[in-house]
Design a protein around this nucleic acid. Sequence first.
DNA 1: CGAATCTCCTGGAGGC
DNA 2: TGCCTCCAGGAGATTC
Length: 271
Amino acid sequence: MPELPEVETTRRGLLPLVGKAVKSIAIRHATLRWPIPQHLIQTLPNQTLHGLTRRAKYILCEFDTGVLLLHLGMSGRICLLDCNYLPEKHDHFDIEFNDGQVLRLRDPRRFGAVLWIDNKNNDHKLLNSLGPEPLEDGFNAKYLHQVLSNKTLAIKNAIMDGHVVVGVGNIYASESLFRARIHPEMPAKQLSLAQCTRLVTEIKSTLNDSLKAGGSSLRDFFGTDGNPGYFQQEYFVYARTNELCKVCSKPIKCIRLGQRSTFFCAQCQKR
DNA sequence: CGAATCTCCTGGAGGC
DNA sequence: TGCCTCCAGGAGATTC
């Protein structure tokens, strides 16, 4: 379940491909979240990868005539391999480059995506209504306080809404709220400016901590080199139901919010 | 319009 | 060992 730090780590791992030209495309299982466009088989060969950027959890591969958009869903993983490696069961999509390297997407649960944005269209509905990046200056306490001011839903659901801020998934939502000492069920509009300040700070630091640790935190995340190599992050609350709070020693609680498991400490986090 | 619910999918865990 | 059920979750689509 890649979150933003894993996606960014994946992007960085792919940077050696920038400047290379595509030799061929393989589509073995086109039915991801949306169908992988078959025209990529004809479109991409001989195009050069000019840049690799990221917006939210989308990796954007800039080619001559358009942008290839990659999303890892929740079980996706991209490896950079020598083309001699045979694909395995859930290896759905390859980009083979002229130097013999292969970008290979493996995604058992197929919630991921491979889409094409032609330069002529210049934008994509998936990208044009997204909120600010959590690690950029546009995501600050004043902004958050303003955007939450008319929202009645629980704050945890609000920060997981990509129109409010992108890249905050289920794990980091619970962790950030604990670190900011805010109850996940608190109505979003009731947060004070001071609470928004704490929440923004903790979202940024939680993501940054994970990024520094090499991407994650997560049991099933692998880097582009195929090695787990991650730092086993110490969660304060995530997946620690009934374990003792590391701050106050009360048991951690688990509730459902927006069909998602939500972990918190009722002693440390107030409404 | 906002908010809640539905949906895609498969591996892994637990029960018997 | 096998089979069944349940669960996890990103986020767009659908419904209310």
